[in-house]
Amino acid sequence: MPVRRGHVAPQNTFLDTIIRKFEGQSRKFIIANARVENCAVIYCNDGFCELCGYSRAEVMQRPCTCDFLHGPRTQRRAAAQIAQALLGAEERKVEIAFYRKDGSCFLCLVDVVPVKNEDGAVIMFILNFEVVMEKDMVGSPAHDTNHRGPPTSWLAPGRAKTFRLKLPALLALTARESSVRSGGAGGAGAPGAVVVDVDLTPAAPSSESLALDEVTAMDNHVAGLGPAEERRALVGPGSPPRSAPGQLPSPRAHSLNPDASGSSCSLARTRSRESCASVRRASSADDIEAMRAGVLPPPPRHASTGAMHPLRSGLLNSTSDSDLVRYRTISKIPQITLNFVDLKGDPFLASPTSDREIIAPKIKERTHNVTEKVTQVLSLGADVLPEYKLQAPRIHRWTILHYSPFKAVWDWLILLLVIYTAVFTPYSAAFLLKETEEGPPATECGYACQPLAVVDLIVDIMFIVDILINFRTTYVNANEEVVSHPGRIAVHYFKGWFLIDMVAAIPFDLLI
């Protein structure tokens, strides 16, 4: 008679799926529990143990900040960024110097990925580790590398530091407007667009060049630039800015003055950032001319202004700041037409079709709590990747769950009947059967004279019903998954307890 339990259901295979997918890609990662103190490590794979030199037993239950890997060259700011990422709910990448158990130093890129439950609360953290440099290539500990984003994938490793954006290309926007319009339909740009040429040739750093990471940081200074100062900065030398009595002219307006920039070969870094931020506020060169004239017309309804409409929906549905990093990277690809469009465009503009998908598509409701890094690593669709929660398995109709209350009560009843059979069957065979043979035949009273025979008949009927119930009862397979398919249940029961239950259900007393 089957006594099969499996009270692990309803099970959740999400954690096993993450481990299996990460292991298949030869990654070095740990999984931490966000619900406990210090976000203790609950799993670390073999790749991480080989990377740091510690065994799994030495890593388990330690804080996922990996303070046991810190050393003299470990930056405090990087460690603080990892700790801050564990307090938030967004994906974050941090470069930090770690030390192995043998004392060797290596520069590592740590990717902190939160995993949320159905309520939107962070319950786990996945920390992925990628070695960037070994100890002989690690720089000085005073050099802070965590304020910069990861290198873009479309640049060669040897040319990542030679990417320079020439400031004269930004200063000569109005001069290039006529050349853009003359391109017409034969050019790649839309009317009114501004073409910015980027020099990728390796050259020595000069005062006129600005690194790509500095251009990325310009967006942080746009908020500090007032509207009046932006307007004066875009007017140009024809209309000098008016300053109040006793007030000095704005240095932001002076930063885009061609006369002032041409007199000296070098520009201050602050002026460069502010000038680029001011130019980015204009949607095209037409807006710059309109600002000089004193009238700013409404933005025209053409394809170039609607190019950012799908980007707005993608940004609203993005799951991490990696989408913004990807957008900034692609927006700086050289030799393309940049349409400086305000994100607050007309909502009635139709979304044009684009061959290049900048932001990841909208994630469906079932995966809105899973970050983009987890979705990318697992390579699963929205119909396959579940949320991290207890999910009731989908069972067929008329199927009994093996952990249901009805099955528990039924098993206790069958257990009592088995005990009765084990006690009274030998007793009936030894004593009652002998008395029946010696006594007179009682054929007239039937079952009324033999109450134990009636009980034995009921017990046999219950055993037959138990066999039928076992054909529709779920079970737990070797992978700790609840199986509810009727065919698989029948095959599993035939290979197991079916023969024993059938022999126990045969009414031998009635056959004798």
Score class of each variant (00 low, 15 high):
332 K>H: 10
306 G>N: 05
335 Q>V: 03
370 V>T: 06
320 S>N: 03
7 H>W: 11
176 R>H: 06
117 N>A: 14
59 V>Y: 01
27 R>S: 11
52 C>H: 01
17 T>K: 12
217 A>C: 15
128 N>Y: 06
370 V>E: 03
64 C>Y: 05
14 F>P: 09
297 P>I: 11
123 I>C: 10
319 T>H: 08
210 L>G: 06
32 A>S: 06
81 Q>H: 06
81 Q>N: 14
386 P>F: 05
380 L>D: 03
309 H>L: 07
176 R>I: 01
334 P>H: 04
328 R>K: 15
58 E>Y: 10
344 K>P: 10
308 M>H: 05
56 R>G: 01
313 S>Q: 11
327 Y>P: 14
169 A>D: 06
228 A>Y: 06
356 R>G: 10
199 D>G: 06
169 A>M: 05
49 C>M: 06
384 V>P: 08
246 G>P: 12
146 N>P: 06
223 A>N: 13
44 C>F: 01
304 S>Y: 11
96 I>M: 14
169 A>P: 13
103 G>H: 04
219 D>S: 05
220 N>Y: 10
215 V>I: 13
176 R>T: 06
290 A>Q: 04
302 H>S: 05
362 K>W: 08
239 S>K: 12
301 R>H: 08
113 V>R: 10
207 S>K: 11
290 A>T: 15
380 L>V: 03
178 S>F: 06
279 V>C: 12
221 H>D: 05
219 D>M: 05
195 V>W: 01
55 S>F: 01
290 A>V: 07
120 G>M: 15
73 R>P: 01
268 A>F: 07
152 T>G: 08
27 R>C: 14
266 S>M: 14
100 R>C: 01
311 L>F: 08
133 M>T: 14
266 S>K: 08
190 A>N: 05
272 S>K: 12
177 E>T: 07
333 I>V: 14
303 A>S: 11
326 R>I: 04
126 I>S: 06
190 A>G: 09
8 V>L: 07
120 G>F: 07
295 V>D: 12
178 S>K: 08
101 K>V: 01
352 P>M: 03
286 D>T: 06
267 L>R: 06
306 G>W: 03
365 E>M: 07
297 P>F: 14
351 S>T: 05
205 P>D: 12
52 C>N: 01
32 A>R: 01
289 E>Y: 01
279 V>M: 09
182 S>Q: 14
293 A>M: 15
134 E>L: 06
134 E>T: 15
161 K>T: 14
200 L>W: 06
273 R>S: 12
186 G>H: 14
341 V>L: 06
333 I>P: 15
216 T>P: 10
177 E>N: 13
137 M>F: 15
105 C>F: 09
21 K>C: 13
362 K>P: 06
364 K>I: 07
333 I>F: 03
381 G>C: 15
70 H>M: 11
29 F>L: 01
77 R>T: 13
69 L>D: 01
35 R>L: 06
348 F>R: 14
172 A>I: 01
257 N>F: 14
200 L>Y: 15
330 I>V: 12
264 S>C: 11
218 M>N: 06
15 L>A: 07
22 F>L: 14
28 K>F: 09
305 T>E: 14
332 K>I: 01
292 R>N: 14
293 A>I: 14
184 G>N: 14
297 P>L: 09
31 I>R: 01
104 S>C: 12
266 S>G: 11
19 I>E: 01
94 V>H: 03
365 E>T: 11
69 L>C: 01
147 H>N: 14
279 V>F: 13
136 D>M: 15
3 V>S: 14
99 Y>S: 03
114 P>I: 01
359 I>H: 11
81 Q>F: 10
386 P>K: 03
226 G>S: 06
279 V>G: 11
24 G>C: 09
222 V>K: 15
58 E>L: 02
141 P>L: 15
192 G>P: 05
212 L>V: 06
129 F>D: 01
323 D>R: 07
78 A>N: 10
120 G>E: 15
306 G>K: 04
337 T>I: 05
296 L>K: 14
150 P>K: 13
349 L>I: 10
302 H>D: 11
101 K>S: 04
193 A>S: 07
